[in-house]
Nucleic acid binder design. Structure first.
Lengths: 170, 170
DNA sequence: ATCCATGCAAATGTTTTGCATCTAG
DNA sequence: CTAGATGCAAAACATTTGCATGGAT
């Protein structure tokens, strides 16, 4: 569901190089697990939570621990390669930040699907709001919760949908 | 820091009436603690986390438990009187929704201050995005993280600020 | 009287941390 | 070699839940 449909080999190399510099600059070490985790995220098209990521990585390196996954994700977030967000749930989700492109989310309250979108005019508007408050923006999180097209269509019984929406509203 | 600077007595009565109807409609009971909690939130100007709320309420009713605070907040959110949000932290914050007015947040990464803002054009833009995806929006969460004016001013040493920003960026 | 509300403590689920051991530089 | 990385299990934290008791209707 990524907006950038094609993630090239160069992208991966560039990201890895950035992480490597980041680590070296702080006297941290370049390890196989750090490489493994970043490579996995780079080929992943969607966001993922820490536990699923841990499970997936165990298939490739049975010994990797939850602690290492969390510690590495934290480094990647600090490095700016990964974005951490919460979709109104009790756990965080992680996803690769491609270049400096940013996208926001429409989250279906019914099927939990996440639709990504990007609108330059929205970004501009945000900048103008920040200027007004003399606020220096670093990053943002914009999530719209509602009902997606498919879930609405599935609900052929319009009365049920109306009920559902009024239940959700209050 | 609320946009609505004046919360009238009528507002409070209206909110309480709404909660009362909500409870009665579901066969739930109108209790002193539920009233206490809502009244406390209504007079509060800022958002608050569950634990601080619990501490504050204990001053008024020593017996109130954490569980009751969470259970009541949950009811208020369902009722539409309270909004629950997470400012990139590990715990949720709660605040009264005044009428159907909505506001978004600028969050200072330095002093943790939260500035509220409302822009009709931004809301309109969101609606048009939803239309494009045939998505029915119910509510949204929009947070911009950065450095507030005061923290920037405090940092009279511009070199430090530059360092800080580049550190935050990656 | 009935059924819901509440306090309490235990359980849950996620994320963090201390420590002994292992490994990259 | 030496500082940092890792696995493991325990700890920390916010939040939820089960159950016996208390309270609203």
């Amino acid at each position: 569901m990524s907006l950038k449909t094609k993630i090239t080999q160069e992208d991966r190399q560039q990201s890895w190089a950035k992480f490597e510099s980041f680590l070296k600059a702080r006297g941290l070490k370049v390890t196989g697990q750090r490489r493994l985790l970043l490579q996995f995220l780079l080929q992943l098209k969607h966001h993922i939570d820490a536990d699923s990521l841990h499970q997936s990585l165990k298939n490739k390196d049975a010994s990797i621990s939850r602690g290492t996954v969390y510690r590495t994700l934290d480094l990647l977030v600090q490095c700016g390669l990964v974005r951490k967000s919460t979709f109104g749930e009790d756990h965080a989700n992680y996803e690769i930040v491609h270049h400096d492109e940013h996208h926001d989310h429409l989250i279906c309250m019914e099927c939990k699907k996440v639709i990504e979108f990007y609108r330059a005019d929205l970004e501009k508007l945000q900048d103008s709001i920040c200027q007004h408050y003399k606020f220096i923006p670093m990053h943002h999180s914009h999530q719209i919760f509602g009902i997606c097209n498919q879930c609405r269509s599935k609900d052929s019984d319009q009365i049920n949908l109306t009920k559902k929406i009024s239940r959700l509203n209050a």
